[in-house]
Simulated assay, not measured.
Amino acid sequence: MAQHDGDKATAAGSELEAVSPRTVSTGTAVATTGGAFENPGMPPHSPRATDLDPRKDKTAERRVGLLFLFSIVGSVFAIVAYIIFPIVPGDLSSVRVNNMLLGVGISVALLAIGLGAIYWAKNLMKDGEWEEHRHPTRGSEDTRAAAVEVFTLGNEESGFGRRSLIRNSLIGALVVSPLPAVVMFRDLAPAADPVALLKETLWEKDVRLMRDPANTPVKASEVTLGSVFQIIPENLAGREDFLEQKAKAAVLLMRLKPEDLHVSPERADWNYQGIVAYSKICTHVGCPVALAEQHTHHLLCPCHQSQFDISHEAKVIFGPAKRPLPQLPITVDAQGYLVARSGFHEPVGPSFWERS
């Protein structure tokens, strides 16, 4: 009989430990919802100044709210600085100023949220020592009631429900903090139709092909089999938007044997005695196509290994690119210099833009 009673007591203790979700040390004993246990060795609890003095409690609450409000100010500052100090194309000092002010604003916004949350937890939330008891997971009514109790207890400990200043300022800081990113990402969208922008390059009829970076014209006789030239348009030099226009207009010039070229009838006169010019900008994501294989007539983009066959109108033969490199129609002028017959007949660069 004594052994049976002992088994029942052990089972009751196990059941109590399974049901009790957590216990808290009050200094001398560990209180639970189902009873009390001896202190397992944790030091006595030391109350904080905010626990003893309501005025210091209120002061700490104001400091947390002030930090969250400071976060809002940092986010707004980042947005205003991004608009007032824009990046001017070609002006590196404007890039430095814009990045510095934007970084300061975003850093202040995120740092203030972090400091506010830490100060809140250290000075205002309950700081008792807790002991969690492992128990089986089950969807019973008792389990759901225990979960509600945990959330309710967490709300009481943090003071989130009753400290309106902290709650409202935190919500405001969290709502405002993503706005600088929204403004910056929105500004990435082009102001005009991207297809039209990528179609408009400086190449037009009778514009000479110039070596880059020497900026000297190229005669057809200078382009030998196997040679590759990086070419820019003659009218590019001296422009304020030099880099932007060069990024769209750069082409690769090379010479193949005329019998190695396989071209469609509408492009029969786009080359000159086997000399062809194709956009240097990969049609995948816009990396510069920089590697040429003389024997295979292939061009390789080093970023994602797209390959284009120059002997077949630069069609894609490997990689993620979805369309051939745009071809620049060329011929020679009266002095024997290579010139463009016209501009590109399709947009240059990446293919992810919507195309008409």
Rank of each mutant, 00 (worst) to 15 (best):
E129R: 05
I275Y: 08
A334M: 04
I281W: 09
L291A: 10
H295A: 15
C282I: 15
A173K: 02
P178T: 02
A277R: 03
A112L: 03
R167G: 01
A340T: 02
L197A: 14
I87A: 00
H262P: 02
R162K: 12
Y272N: 04
N271Q: 14
W120H: 07
F308L: 05
K248Y: 01
L325Q: 14
A145Y: 08
L115G: 04
R267E: 09
S342D: 14
G154L: 13
N155H: 00
G35T: 11
L202K: 05
F318I: 09
C301Y: 08
F151S: 09
G13A: 10
L252E: 05
A112Y: 04
H4R: 14
F344V: 03
P324M: 10
F70C: 06
P288Y: 01
P324W: 13
P213E: 04
A147S: 08
V88F: 13
A321P: 03
H312F: 09
L256N: 15
E156K: 07
L202I: 03
L153V: 02
L243E: 12
P47S: 11
K219Y: 05
A121P: 00
M254P: 00
A31K: 10
Y278R: 04
N155G: 08
P89V: 06
L102A: 15
S75V: 12
A60C: 11
R134P: 00
L52Y: 07
F242W: 09
W203S: 13
W130L: 13
C282D: 11
F229W: 13
T152N: 08
I84Q: 15
F242E: 07
D309E: 10
V276N: 01
C301K: 09
S158I: 02
P258M: 01
D193Q: 00
A121G: 06
D53Q: 02
D212M: 11
L174R: 06
P54A: 09
L16P: 01
N99L: 05
V97N: 03
E15G: 07
D260F: 07
A121D: 10
E200P: 15
A340H: 08
A250P: 08
R167I: 03
L67S: 06
T28I: 06
L243K: 10
L67R: 07
P136V: 00
A192R: 06
Y272W: 13
A237F: 09
Y272Q: 10
